[in-house]
Design a binder for these strands. Structure first.
Length: 189
DNA sequence: TGCCGGATCCTG
DNA sequence: AGGATCCGGCAA
């Protein structure tokens, strides 16, 4: 298995599972961006699950387009998009190729290598320097990946409706937003 | 080709 | 409450 700084990189099989399960398992894991002196590490504390083409809040609910190509692709890749013309959002693609599922990273805590605000999907991408050049990148290689930290203690998970998807009918009510209760970096209580 | 609205964030 | 700022998706 590949490693960064002596820690195992999460393998593709981690992502190739039920999206809600992946979303829950992502809480507390570390996101690694860049290598060597440029390396930035962040602890994931808030996520949202997007369940594919039948999920009216999910970008893939409108079918395969150039933008959603990556989401319909194989698991374990980054899906990055531009929102409101000024912020980027980072997702990890889940489940087998063709399902169009992903998990949005909504908030992180700073571990090392960078500064800035990280409580919100646009803010964390800005702080970590994530942009469209990261779209479609394979998350199983050292320069952009997820790892399980050695010191992963127990956490309490809060389940809420997703943010900003009121247009999605009954899908807006589903409890698909998860965050670590005790984290100070949650985007909204 | 044009228009509308968005998985956001900041300011007043 | 409203603006920044621009792209994607759909209607025409």
């Amino acid at each position: 298995m590949r490693t960064v700084s002596g820690v195992d990189i999460l393998p593709r099989s981690f992502y190739d599972r039920d999206t809600r399960q992946v979303a829950l398992d992502l809480l507390g894991l570390h996101l690694v961006v860049g290598e060597g002196g440029e390396q930035k590490i962040a602890r994931i504390v808030e996520v949202e699950a997007y369940l594919g083409s039948q999920d009216l809040a999910c970008h893939t609910s409108r079918g395969m387009t150039r933008r959603t190509q990556v989401m319909f692709g194989p698991p374990g890749h980054a899906y990055v998009y531009l929102i409101y013309g000024m912020y980027h959002c980072l997702n990890v693609v889940t489940e087998p190729e063709g399902k169009g599922c992903a998990v949005l990273i909504r908030a992180v805590e700073i571990v090392s290598g960078f500064t800035g605000k990280t409580s919100g999907p646009g803010l964390l991408c800005r702080a970590l320097g994530i942009g469209m050049s990261h779209n479609g990148v394979d998350l199983t290689q050292p320069k952009f990946c997820l790892v399980r930290p050695a010191t992963a203690g127990a956490i309490r998970v809060v389940r809420r409706p997703r943010i900003g998807v009121d247009y999605a009918g009954h899908w807006a009510k589903r409890l698909l937003r998860f965050y670590i209760k005790e984290s100070p970096c949650i985007s909204r209580r």
